[in-house]
Nucleic acid binder design. Structure first.
Lengths: 377, 377
DNA sequence: AGAAAAATCCAAAGCGCTTTGAAAGCGTAA
DNA sequence: TTACGCTTTCAAAGCGCTTTGGATTTTTCT
């Protein structure tokens, strides 16, 4: 007799060992697939699988009486069509992929992604889509997209944290996989779907506000320079200075991953300059916390001694219900961006011929208590 | 002739309209399924689908020469078995579900979940599993698990943020769906898999340290009381006071969602008591930031005027590379917890007969600069 | 009443893979 | 040469659903 090498053979052996008492494979098989299926449901109802399937999926070709009978029986057994079978039959994955890259340097996961996904997830759920999440080392990003596409595991993907030069956009267009970018990529000429905040304008306004208050030495504590949002924010900052005839001091500009310790470290660097800035604009409320710590350490008071404006993604665990918020901020809900991205992606999947669309959100400039005119020397 | 009501009928009409030029459905169909499949690959190789499948899946029943030929051809076409088909055929979903509940009150997503998932995700990827993420309003939690099980969309789930009284554990045991709890549930007698930090002991130690420094009035700014971790931390805190014959002042204990503004608010409450505490223990580094802000506002200095110990989940965007960290902290990497949870879940799925296991992590007590003896009055 | 139209239902054919049970190929011993 | 045991390959049967093209029943219209 032929020796059994197959996976199944091995497994059944193992199972048999563990579940002594079972006499055959069949009983184990049925123990694994415990739930009601379409076949048994239709048999119980004395109808064909077709009719039951149609009744459940809302097709008009089944009488109302039949539909009610089917729905009642389905509810009774808590029947839900098997996802795996349904996906194979329909040829759709009903799944959206989110690939979030984890920076190699600090193994950092951008904290805004949780709130972004919270927004998107709700939309997917409404439309019956699942969310496939994968955190990948940033050098593996494209490989991961390609693999998802090749094994057709998803119907679309969201691209997080685009860089100024973003390869993924062209690559995804080639793969013919619907996608939406959260953010934009300046050096990309192709058309693509995106949802972004008006970074340039909001940092222009923030800087402008500080200038109007009388500040002339304004620091910028920004994210990593390769990131598109960071580049745009720097541009807004520079433009404001330029339009007000203030020279840009390169030493006032720092770029780094947006962690609290980096906010602290960069603020210390600025504060220890021969002529330290009297105001700071920063890209993240997490960094703002680090800046506050630096001020504290240098015995300086936020607002009174140094003004700070931060970008505020309206993260749920920093949301400030106070009438006057702590930080003057350019605020834009990243959760709302998640919702909009999801909507856009679902629209694109439903209608592949659709022209790519860009959605530009305008951050509000919210006045808090961290900005005051500079202290007279 | 019968009128076409079917979904497909409708859709093909729509597609036809949008893609003028295509003559028939077939061509559209093939445009959608663009990738190579097993059939075409085996035809090209002049082998049966069986042989190709076996060669790719590492079965020993295919000669080395054949395997190499197959692998080469597969690589050439970037062939990956279609996920949907494979899952139906094997009867496995190769997917782990993470249901993260979003609190109704603040729509808050616990910030630790991103790092936890980063840890788990890497493990899943290694074993060929996908991660299905769903953020659900906390009242829908169980419905969501039930639905995932009914449509057999996942092979196992992770339970986040268990409460002292946690219904989900018994429910999941009934569903016969493998699961791991991140944390524990005190009032649950059933056995289940869990990965948790020794919350009781670490808060005992933290409180003990403050007492040894000379503090007698110690506040506790904790998470929501229903959460199991919060209850255990309170217990450790109380035990330390008790063992040192210090009366517990209920006014020194606050419970709330762990946001920065709540940290601030609760700290202000404590600091404005007739006899304010000289030290505070808190459950989250985010709250610790709020506490620092409160100290700042009351013109108090962290460490010198009020000592603070925080629990530190070692979140990537707060990770402090400084030799002496800002906060004295009970530290335990939540990312490591994610890895361990994933390992445990995958083990359970591979071997369903396995006895449930609990993994207890011990938080380190890290000395930082936020703890000093109390200031003499 | 009879024919046409509409409504309702069904058997069967996939979806793209894995797995089974059997057949074919191949070297070696009798 | 034949027979035997391995090794290697294959045709075919599902997995549980959706969708097709018809078949059957009911309603509507003349």
């Amino acid at each position: 007799m032929r020796q059994k090498y197959t996976k199944y053979g091995l497994k059944s052996q193992k199972l048999g060992f563990l579940t002594a008492g079972r006499e055959n494979l069949l009983s184990i098989g049925s123990a694994l697939t415990n739930s009601t299926n379409l076949k048994s449901l239709s048999q119980e109802l004395g109808m064909s699988q077709t009719t039951v399937s149609r009744a459940l999926n809302g097709f008009p070709e089944v009488s109302e009486r039949t539909r009610q009978l089917v729905l009642k029986a389905a509810a009774k057994h808590n029947y839900k069509p098997n996802t795996r079978a349904r996906r194979l039959a329909t040829g759709k994955s009903m799944t959206i992929g989110h690939l979030v890259s984890v920076s190699k340097e600090h193994e950092m996961v951008n904290p805004i992604f949780a709130d972004f996904i919270a927004g998107a997830s709700a939309r997917y759920a409404q439309s019956g889509y699942d969310l496939l999440l994968s955190l990948v080392p940033d050098e593996d990003e494209f490989t991961s997209y390609k693999e998802l596409a090749a094994r057709s595991a998803v119907d679309g993907v969201v691209v997080h944290a685009p860089r100024v030069d973003e390869q993924r956009i062209a690559q995804l267009n080639n793969l013919n996989l619907p996608f939406v970018v959260h953010g934009r990529s300046s050096n990309t000429v192709e058309k693509y779907n995106w949802v972004d905040v008006n970074n340039e304008r909001s940092f222009f306004r923030a800087t402008q506000l500080l200038i109007e208050l009388g500040h002339r030495s304004i620091g910028l504590i920004n994210g990593v320079a390769e990131m598109d949002f960071a580049m745009r924010r720097t541009r807004g900052y520079r433009r404001a200075l330029k339009e007000n005839n203030i020279a840009v001091a390169e030493a006032y500009i720092t770029h780094s991953e947006m962690t609290e310790p980096n906010g602290y470290k960069n603020a210390i660097t600025l504060l220890d300059l021969p002529t330290p800035p009297t105001a700071i604009v920063t890209s993240s409320i997490i960094m703002a916390n680090g800046i506050r710590r630096a001020l504290d350490e240098r015995e300086l008071k936020l607002g009174r001694d140094v003004s700070v404006i931060t970008h505020d993604d309206d993260l749920s665990y920093f949301r400030d219900p106070a009438a006057v918020p702590v930080y003057t901020a350019t605020r834009s809900s990243v959760r709302e961006a998640g919702r909009l991205s999801a909507d856009l992606l679902l629209k694109t999947i439903a209608d592949p011929g659709r022209d790519p669309e860009g959605i530009l959100l305008d951050a509000e400039l919210i006045l808090g208590s961290s900005t005051k005119p500079p202290r007279p020397r």
